[in-house]
Design a protein around this nucleic acid. Sequence first.
DNA 1: CGTAACGTTGAATCGGCTCAATAGATGTGG
DNA 2: CCACATCTATTGAGCCGATTCAACGTTACG
Lengths: 248, 248
Amino acid sequence: MSLAIGTETAVSRTNSILARQVATCASCTLRARSLCSGVPDGEISRLAACATRQHVSAGDVIFDEGEAADNVVTITSGTAKIFKLLPDGRRQITGFLFPGDFAGLALEGSYVYSAEAVTEVNLCRFGRHQLRGLLERFPKMEQNLLRLTVNELSSAQDQMVLLGRKTAAEKIASFLLMLSDRASHRDDEDISLPMTRTDIADYLGLTTETVSRTFTQLRKSGCIKVPDAGSVTVADRERLEGLAAGLN
Amino acid sequence: MSLAIGTETAVSRTNSILARQVATCASCTLRARSLCSGVPDGEISRLAACATRQHVSAGDVIFDEGEAADNVVTITSGTAKIFKLLPDGRRQITGFLFPGDFAGLALEGSYVYSAEAVTEVNLCRFGRHQLRGLLERFPKMEQNLLRLTVNELSSAQDQMVLLGRKTAAEKIASFLLMLSDRASHRDDEDISLPMTRTDIADYLGLTTETVSRTFTQLRKSGCIKVPDAGSVTVADRERLEGLAAGLN
DNA sequence: CGTAACGTTGAATCGGCTCAATAGATGTGG
DNA sequence: CCACATCTATTGAGCCGATTCAACGTTACG
């Protein structure tokens, strides 16, 4: 699926847009964050040399589980999701990716999950071998990567608590607060939901119907407002936080 | 709880058993695995110098969520569990630890989960600051640590699929096969279950009753044998693997 | 032994799921 | 601009898998 954004295409584009890539790293708003902050300013060109910028449309595949893991990607704009499938089609979304997040780190072998764009996404692909070279040259970068991976692991453990032990309302409350923290919004109380109810359900281990009903219930109880399907306003943050933490 | 094995005690023991520690690293059966394999043989003493061996009894605390994360520990024998609690006592076990596994990596700050011994456990505590020194001296060690953490993250994602999308029977089947892979047993078909039904339930997002009933059901259907509560024999591995993968 | 902790089994309940219908949003072409 | 199709979201009714509550075995141990 989605041949247009496969690895080969990305690589073949490398030469034609190299100049733009170099410029992009230096001016990238994520320059000081994520992976890239371990590369000294004087050596940005080395970073740019192993990065390929790419634009993908909402719904497009970024990579598929099982493919050769030739790239690590970082999201520069938009929202993506990573997920795993069971043979009969049951899906678990293991994370949403926002600008600065990375995915596809499989130190060897193949991707262990799939990634797709939720909205229009701009991303940077780093070639695996080139990235390894960078990591060896700049230990600071490897330290960053370790720190980021440890943080991801910690989030994964929080998500296990959510999936294994929280009720539907607690799951939705936790999810909204996670979005409020991690994604950027007009203000603290205003959360945008770029993903569908099905995505939310597959992230929280629920069905779309239960997600929908729980939104309704939280709305009726005055915790949140739901102006439209794509946004939520926090009306009573304290109560929402209590719910998410598992009080009540 | 369990003051006897707190960090202070462990540290205060350091001097008295230093000689034994040095000897232990060189002869440790895990020498070539886990964290430690990144340290050249000639420099083992540096490794030994920041490691404190400790013995804890079944049920004892290894460290508690929220404590200052002064140590990383690796299990050298026995089985441990790591878990998080919700305020009302609901518990999610996020992993079982077997020899070679490590826990407590919080690059700064405090532990984000608790760890307790399931059986009698022998472990090695590495001081955080000393470990950081080692990592900087031996980049190979940091690479190992990254590789191990990435693998843990991958397991965590598998567990999310299990918790969010699998049925009770599929969860138990997956759990048994995980144990069969990771823990050491007399043979492939023979699995020892050192943890209680409550531990299993809290790992799989179930109740003890459901765990018990599901064992019975798998036993009656001929997938497994349950000679006693502490062990399981795989009778039909193919069917168990099908179940675990989510076929059927 | 007696007692406590752990495990199993049964009966009834319930939270979330399935199935089904409706409503809203988005886009397309006439 | 409307008619139509499609996709997403909401709501309702009934069901089911897992939980809760309870009783009873079993094992370990002082």
